[in-house]
Amino acid sequence: MKKFGVNAFTDMKKGLKDCDIVMMLRLQNERMSSSYLSSNREYYEYYGLTPDKLEHAKSDALIMHPGPMNRGIEIDTILADDINKSVIKEQVELGVAVRMACLKIFCLK
């Protein structure tokens, strides 16, 4: 991770300190055949984005997620739908446009 220039944290609160944007990623349950995790509820407790963990980021931090979301696993449902903090819907909508644009560029070459 260090070689990629990434600072990795196992304590989410420390990792979130002073962040402008918090991007959650989907827990890929379908690829989790052999016990990476003990349970979803424990994952949520330690690594799910919740209001109390978000307080450690900047006060105007934006929440992102490429979707589809597992509510109650990697992200709290209230935060996901919070129109003041979450730009997830816009991200997903614009993501389609970006993919369309990419496809067009590559296909025309």
């Binding site: 016990s35 995790l37 003990s38 349970s39 509820r41 424990e42 407790e45 330690y46």
Partner: peptide, 9 residues
């Protein structure tokens, strides 16, 4: 011996 328990909780 297959799945971990919830250590944190």
């Amino acid at each position: 011996g297959t799945n971990m328990t919830e250590f944190g909780l």
